[in-house]
Design a protein around this nucleic acid. Structure first.
Lengths: 339, 339
DNA sequence: AATACTTATGCAATCGCTTGCAATAATGTT
DNA sequence: AACATTATTGCAAGCGATTGCATAAGTATT
């Protein structure tokens, strides 16, 4: 493995000159710069990561924090796409990404503590936003910079984040159903402690209000089929005239679809259904699921970009909104034709 | 951030003593060891990652290599679960994991080259096994240790790997259908350049042979619905009496299911279907999908364990086989009752 | 009590790179 | 030609850890 001394020797200069040359320092003359760069290339030189970081005291790795495992979360392809987006941008900028995971909240926090203490993480990216997140507390406490993917709960103005406009997305999804003649539309969610679910619900409610239609909310987890059937039975007793559902994400939508499809009576009713995330699930569902695409890879990229441009601490935080887009498939049945 | 000097000062010893004490060196007396450890704890000390690695020349991060992006692969939750398994084990051992991704094969290889040159990756874990993988070539060339999740193509005896017994899994899946009275069973796959697909196919064929039943192979990608319908139409013309399918993975199975379900004629036939991976898809399908579970998290953990125990170079490579298990759901319909 | 042996600690070099400052070379000014 | 500037380069000190070797302290041996 070639060191900077090797490069220097080959170029006939001192290590310091070599270092400066390769960093494009203005103060080095063109001929020597060229010599050095040539030598470096010939030796296939890359600066030692650890040595460089040690010397500059500026670490170059980004810590990507995954949410504490709920089975559901982890099997959600969403995250991997965000990670890919982050990693693409980072590696183009010569940074590494490293992951922080944990089976419990305590474990995750502990792992992050260690990472901070080791002092080689430049910045964190949180792939989720949760109420009272102990991780966020930790990061604030140690005064470590971070970017959230999702809308922050605390210190919104001081925290950089990347998100979809989930309120708008919720509005649009509901509007999509309304436009196709649906009047009784239910919003289906599972956990309001997630910012994203709350936002989408808000958007849904906005549309309902605008059209003077009732907001019908249903919290359900569909943990198993029987319980799903039961809660839907209960639901339809209360709201027999519901024709459409806005599900807080595709997985939720699919679970509902499953329940509805399995009951001959419900099945014929051809309920309309729209989900969020445009995940692979939506393509594989039957019927295929109309869904609001949110471009997770893009979210990751933007988050990484924010992290890469290190702005001074006193500067205002950045917020990037990634647009969404409804992808039409076959789960929505118009009650009347579009005007 | 506390350094080792701070710890040393507080404990009233020299940095070298502090270092040795914290590494449990035999040569340090119990009382000083205790003093040092106490001081370290009080200062919340953790050795600087970069400094430590630089001094010991032994890096502590594991590079996790994701396959080059095909949309399909990246939206497969499988990978995230493996990553989580790896990360759990690594962080328990004080290691970091860092990701290598790439949009193209060239980019991926380049990223890996850089990582190797920077010299701070101790080991790589490849999350896939592909024919003629340029990454493997690279790693061999630079003599970097790595573990493959999946069965290696080259130098099988010299390469450590973790895998399911996919041949056996294929055998079992086919047997499952045979046991339930199916005689004409088709194996459905998409890409034989993946080791895993070849293995499962082999297993399927073994069962077919044993029962003197014909092997019926179908390569398809179901890229869009129309093409899916077309190829199945073609298929059934040739093999009208097929009643069961072994699909090479759940996604494949779901795509088939979709095609079959959408055609009224095929639908009534109630084909039987078994997939692999027991991914979340299988729970969300309709009907729910019987699938061979392969425990990706476990695969990740085992791979990480291998990497963590650094054995001398001349030692034989390790291979760990993670068991699989058929998870019964509702996509298989017995033709006759089980004897 | 002087010597030999352990045992426990500290000194100082090292890992590979960066960077402030001093030294040298190149150029311009009078 | 002598001096003042400015443009280039090199020296050497760190960054925070580890580790071989020398030293100091403690115990045993005679």
């Amino acid at each position: 493995m070639a060191t900077i001394k090797d490069v220097a020797k080959r170029a006939g200069v001192s290590p310091s000159t070599a270092s400066r040359a390769m960093h494009g320092s203005k103060v080095i003359s063109k001929p020597t710069r060229d010599k050095v760069i040539k030598a470096a290339r010939e030796l296939n030189y890359a600066p030692d990561f650890n040595a460089q970081n040690l010397a500059t005291k500026a670490s170059n790795t980004i810590g990507v924090v995954l949410p504490v495992d709920h089975h559901e979360i982890f099997s959600n392809p969403f995250f991997l796409e965000m990670i890919r987006g982050i990693n693409e941008v980072c590696s183009k900028n010569g940074s590494m990404t490293t992951l922080a995971t944990g089976i419990s909240s305590d474990e995750l926090v502990h792992n992050i503590d260690v990472m901070i203490a080791q002092g080689h993480i430049r910045n964190f990216i949180l792939l989720y936003s949760e109420k009272n997140d102990p991780v966020v507390e930790r990061l604030n406490h140690f005064d470590v910079q971070y970017v959230i993917i999702g809308k922050p709960y605390q210190e919104v103005n001081k925290t950089s984040y990347v998100d979809n406009d989930n309120v708008q997305a919720g509005t649009d999804a509901a509007q999509y159903l309304v436009d196709r003649g649906h009047q009784r539309i239910c919003f289906l969610y599972s956990d309001l402690s997630k910012m994203v679910q709350g936002d989408r619900m808000l958007g849904y409610q906005r549309t309902m209000m605008q059209h003077q239609l009732p907001s019908i909310l249903l919290e359900a987890r569909f943990e198993d089929h029987a319980s799903g059937v039961k809660s839907m039975k209960h639901f339809f007793e209360q709201y027999p005239d519901v024709t459409g559902f806005v599900a807080v994400d595709d997985m939720m939508a699919l679970k509902l679809q499953q329940v509805l499809h399995n009951d001959p009576e419900w099945k014929v009713k051809q309920f309309s259904l729209i989900g969020f995330n445009n995940s692979i699930f939506s393509e594989l569902a039957h019927p295929t699921l109309t869904s609001v695409a949110v471009f997770p890879q893009r979210l990751g990229e933007e988050a990484a970009k924010i992290v890469m441009t290190d702005r001074p601490a006193e500067e205002l935080s950045t917020a990037v909104i990634v647009p969404h887009q409804i992808v039409t498939r076959h789960s929505v049945h118009p009650i009347r034709s579009l005007k």
